[in-house]
Amino acid sequence: MRDLFAVAMMFGIYSLLTAALFMDLDAADVAFTEAAVGAGVTTILLLSSLRLTGRWERRPKHSPLLPLLVVGVTGAALVYGTLDMPHLGDPQAPVHQHVAPHYIENAPQEMGIPNIVTAVLASYRGFDTLGETLVIFTAGLSVFLLLGSRAGGRPRPGKTAIGEQPVLRLVVKVLIPFILLFALYVQLHGEYGAGGGFQAGVIFATGMVLYDLVFGEGDARLVVPARWLPRLAAFGILVYGSVGLYALLHGRPFLDYTVLAEDPMVGRHLGILLVELGIGICVFAVVLSIFYALSGRRRQP
C-alpha cells in the first residue's frame, strides 16, 4: 500500500471499525469520540499534511528482521501477561469490584445526572480532564510554534477549493447550520447521553473545516481569523481553571463544584456545564488552528 492517500483512507475506515467495536462493548461515549476524532479530525489532518509532503512512499531498503524480532518479543510479553486475565465481561473480575461500583451507586445521589461517564470525567476525576484539556492546548501551541499562524502566505480569499462545484456549495451552505446546531446539541447534551465538551468542540471544528474545504480558506479565515484561535484556546482553559480556583477561594479543595450554588447538586450541575463549555471552546480553537496551519501552508517542493 504505497499510495499514502489510500493509507489515510484505510486508517479512517480502521478507526471507524474501532468506533463500531466500542459501541458493541457498551461504550457509547468513547465510540462517539473515536468516530468524531479518529475518522474525522485525524483523517483530515493526515490528508492536509500529505498534500504538503507528497503522496508516494518509497520501498524501505533495510531488512525487516530486527523490527520483527522486537515486535515478537513485545508480543510474547503481552500474551504472557494476558494468561491470568479474567474472561471478557465476567462480572467477578476485580475491576468491577473495587472502585467502579461506587461510581454507579453514588453518582445518582451525588451528581443527579444519568451519564455516569460525564459525572466521573468532570467531577470525580476532574483533574484528569483538566490535564486532558491542557494536552490539547499544548498540541495547539506546539503546532503554532512549528508552523506559525501566518505561515504559507496570506490567505487567498475566494479561491474555490474543488474547482466549480455549484451543487456542492449549495448543499454545504444548507448543511453547515445543521452541523453547528448538532454540535451545540452535543455540547449541552453531555449529561444525559453520549456527548460532552470535547466531542462538541471537534464537531464545531469539523463544521468550520467543511466550510473551509468547499469555499476556500480565504472566506473561512474571514469568518474565524487565525489570529484569534490561540487566544480562544487559552480562554477555554482559563474558564476551566477559574471554576476550579473559585472553589479554592471558599476554602474547599480545587475543582469542588459544591461552592458554586447553595445546594451541592445544583452546584455540581453548574460546575460540569461550565467545565464542559471550557473544554468545548478550547478544543474547537485548537483543532481549527491546527487545520488552518496545515491547509494554509504553500507547498515548498
Binding site: 462517539f32 475518522a39 452535543v186 473545516v209
Partner: peptide
Amino acid sequence: WSGFLDVALLYAMVNFVGTIAVMRFFE
C-alpha cells in the same frame, strides 16, 4: 444499545466531510 443514534448521525457527517477533504487534497 443506548445512544447509538447520535454516533450514527455523527458518523454520516464525518464520512461526508472526509470524502470532501479527500477530493480537495487529492486534486
